[in-house]
């Protein structure tokens, strides 16, 4: 039957097109930007500005909230006259998109600013390039990885967020072990996917003390809520009295609106570095480097600080100055992450 053949041909064509997907077409690639990124001559700044203006625009993938990314970008655009095209997503989606685009040799992104483990993954994929920066001396040393393929620009802090109607600030213990007091039973909560926090605490106190701590914490059966944003909201409403692992930024934004929320850094204060990286094959390399210069400059750091983020500049006062802290290892081996996930799940999600 004529129809049968048509049907089969359609199917065959479809299968062929799908398998063709595996064979990527060769495309023109932009030259690697490393010469521009690493140029250190006296006229570096002039060359960048001229080049950036010529390029006119840059594409930024970031997980910084739009409430903060938009003012930051605005300041940059006003200063240099270079337009920023913003694509905002969660760090894992940024990673997925950047890798998929690179594998298809579609080079659209110039600057990536997101969670350091994801940026480190981009480094391992060979998608980002080392770049020079005039402000590195101002930064905390841990903001610079040995390979220098990215630079940390801010830190997300896990803090104790509490409802000010139910707890006084001076009741919050100085260390997390203080929460093991049975008086806290029924008043504390953790976020459902905080295995990373557990890993950092274990690293800080070492296997023995760390394990003892998490076991005793789990015995208090803290409430579990999914989503750091939600948990901060629930503190404000009073459903959760103290959230042990809230992000300071989420708590701070409710506090600034007058909500009954405050937060306190507790030892060990767990931080996760957020980093900026430049695409190795950026279509707008001058503009990209110009943006990195701006973000890491005192002006950029100051802007982050004003928007209640925690910049990595040593010149800015942050909770890191007063509380002993530990940072999540951006290059944490996979087996280790899996181990923390397993322990976390057994202790808190059952």
């Amino acid at each position: 039957m004529a129809w049968m053949i048509g049907w089969k041909q359609v199917l065959a064509a479809a299968i062929m097109s799908v398998s063709a997907v595996a064979v990527a077409p060769a495309q023109d690639e932009p030259a690697e930007a490393s010469a521009i990124y690493l140029y250190q001559g006296a006229d570096r700044d002039q060359r960048l500005l001229a080049g950036g203006r010529r390029e006119g625009t840059l594409v930024l993938y970031t997980s910084l909230a739009t409430t903060e990314a938009v003012p930051l970008i605005g300041a940059f655009e006003r200063k240099y006259g270079v337009k920023v095209q913003l694509w905002r997503a969660l760090s894992e989606n940024i990673l997925q998109r950047t890798i998929a685009e690179a594998r298809a040799r579609r080079h659209s992104v110039d600057v990536i600013e997101t969670n350091s483990p994801e940026v480190e993954a981009l480094a391992r994929e060979g998608l980002i390039g080392e770049f020079s920066n005039p402000h590195v001396a101002d930064l905390h040393p841990w903001a610079l990885p040995p390979h220098r393929l990215w630079i940390g620009d801010r830190v997300d802090l896990r803090v104790a967020a509490f409802n000010t109607g139910k707890v006084r600030r001076d009741e919050i213990p100085a260390t997390y072990e203080g929460f093991l007091d049975p008086a806290w039973k029924g008043r504390i909560a953790v976020e459902a996917a905080d295995d990373e926090w557990l890993g950092a605490v274990m690293k800080y106190w070492g296997e023995d003390r760390g394990t003892a701590f998490v076991r005793r914490l789990a015995a208090l059966k803290p409430d579990v809520r999914k989503g750091h944003v939600l948990i901060a909201q629930l503190v404000a409403v009073g459903e959760v009295t103290v959230a042990l692992t809230a992000y300071s930024g989420n708590a701070e934004s409710i506090k600034r609106k007058g909500g009954p929320v405050d937060w306190a850094p507790v030892e060990p204060l767990v931080g996760r570095l957020q980093a900026i990286a430049l695409a190795r094959q950026a279509p707008h390399p001058h503009a990209a480097l110009l943006f990195a210069d701006f973000l890491l400059s005192p002006e950029g750091m100051q802007l982050l600080q004003e928007m209640s983020r925690v910049p990595t500049s040593r010149a800015m006062p942050t909770p890191l100055d007063t509380t002993k802290y530990v940072l999540v290892d951006p290059a944490q081996p996979r087996e280790e992450a899996v181990k923390w996930q397993r322990i976390w799940k057994e202790l808190f999600l059952k």
């Binding site: 097109s17 063709a20 997907v21 990527a24 077409p25 998109r97 998929a100 298809a104 659209s108």
Partner: peptide, 17 residues
């Protein structure tokens, strides 16, 4: 979403972006 993204990145018919 991932499948569609990968497909039209490789099969460049101008729909991506």
């Amino acid at each position: 979403g991932l499948a569609v993204m990968v497909c039209y990145l490789k099969l460049d018919v101008g729909v991506y972006d």
